[in-house]
Design a binder for these strands. Structure first.
Length: 372
RNA sequence: UGGGGCGUGGCCAAGCGGUAAGGCGCCGGCCUUUGGAGCCGGUAUUCGAAGGUUCGAAUCCUUCCGCCCCAA
């Protein structure tokens, strides 16, 4: 239970259906409870880092949009409303170890990470699932907009949420048969309006709580500053060059850029310039016009096939390369070592190393991997 | 003190007689469980300054101011 509407309704619906439900929330950062007497009353967020893993400037007071101490209070209050027990599990060290360290490492190496995916695969459906077992829970339910179905042969299939506009399967591509067998997504067959309607009907006080967004652990959305705090050596200045290698500017570190980025380049030209390529070894950022951003081919690593079996031949799929990207027709085939090569029918804008490529057949998620 | 060029919003910059493009940046908003992108709206009564020509000038003329380049 994150304290948001979706997981709250998920828990409430299961309880209403008569299941024996235990509410569990993950505490991801050391927390500082809201204290009205504190002059800086905005310091109601969580402070990462006092205890080691993620040292963050405590002066930054506005924290993320999920998993803050206030969200934990919301979760607790919802659990009370539903009438279920509620536990908070401390995952600070795991979160720092899996999610934050990966986040920092990726940016420093010129790639663009997806912390949400790692949070799902390395925490929720790993550590939290284990913890659920300790509570004697048969299944782990979350508020994800995704659907799981089991076929005649006992195989699990993952589908986009019924509300395609809220679908979250892009962040769930790494789930395995074992994980799917123990997972449940009670709101996956609902659309957002229906979920809020349930929340209202069930008198959950989070009914009108805004949807979460942006990276939950980065204050102010200033992830570059966050990375620099975590890895001071990352701020290695370099040059910005154009397609022909001419130096057109300088920058304060490759971690500040991602493929397709337009803002923050600090350059002037007659047309918008976009980041085309990042060369971490040379500390170089290549920029150019938008039409140079299209790419047809990509390879990916650490590929997961949800069925458990990688296809042996070229397979037609719709491939999605970022959240909110309209999956585009492509063919994909396995190569060595859990890797894959993929070719789009038409060029896609800003294929970005570190992001995930997820394969779909209609609404079904076939699998996905990390773009090289 | 011979020759040439340039001064347009915070920055880059188009326009070269008909009533201030565009980009960057910035400010709002939309979108969004990653980043980026995208979309909508806002951001110069004014074109180094002062005169003049004209129905009308950033655009033509004059002078001045400030930069830059090439020759000696």
């Amino acid at each position: 239970m994150s304290g948001g509407v979706d997981s709250s309704v998920a828990a409430a619906l299961l309880a209403e259906q008569g299941h024996d439900v235990i509410g569990v929330s993950m505490q991801l950062y050391p927390s500082t409870p809201r204290d009205p007497s504190t002059p800086n009353h905005e310091a109601s967020g969580l402070v990462i880092g006092r205890s080691g893993q993620a040292a963050v400037d405590p002066a930054v007071q506005k924290w993320g949009t999920c998993c803050t101490i206030d969200d934990l209070y919301d979760a607790r209050r919802v659990a009370a409303t539903i009438g279920i027990p509620h536990y908070i599990v401390n995952f600070e060290s795991q979160f720092g170890e899996h999610v934050i360290s990966n986040f920092v490492r990726e940016y420093v190496s010129g790639r663009t990470p997806i912390p949400c995916s790692h949070c799902n695969s390395d925490l929720k459906f790993a550590e939290l699932l284990d913890r659920a077992r300790a509570y004697d829970a048969e299944q782990l339910a979350t508020g994800h907009y995704a659907r799981i179905e089991r076929d005649d042969r006992g195989r699990y299939h993952l589908y986009r949420g019924a509300d395609n506009s809220k679908d979250q399967t892009y962040f769930l591509f790494s789930l395995t048969q074992e994980q799917l067998a123990r997972a449940a997504f009670p709101v996956g067959h609902l659309d957002k309006d229906a979920v809020r309607e349930h929340a209202r009907r069930l008198n959950l006080h989070v009914t009108s709580k805004p949807d979460s967004q942006e990276i939950c652990f980065v204050p102010d959305g200033n992830y570059a500053a966050f990375v620099e705090r975590q890895a001071p050596d990352a701020a290695r200045p370099g040059t910005i060059v154009d397609h022909d290698g001419r130096v057109v500017g300088t920058h304060a570190g490759v971690h500040r850029f991602t493929i397709g980025q337009r803002k923050g380049l600090g350059l002037s030209s007659s047309e918008p310039l976009y980041v085309l390529e990042i060369k971490p070894d040379a500390a170089q950022v290549v920029v150019g016009s938008r039409d140079a951003l299209g790419r047809t081919r990509l390879t990916a690593s650490a590929v997961n096939w949800i069925s458990g079996e990688a296809p042996s031949e070229w397979l037609r799929v719709n491939a999605q390369i970022r959240h909110r990207h309209a999956a585009a027709p492509a063919k994909v085939r396995s190569t060595d070592g859990g890797r894959v090569e993929l070719e789009f029918d038409t060029p896609q804008t800003a294929v970005t190393p570190g992001q995930a490529v997820v394969f779909y057949d209609g609404d079904e998620v076939l699998g996905g991997g990390w773009i090289d």
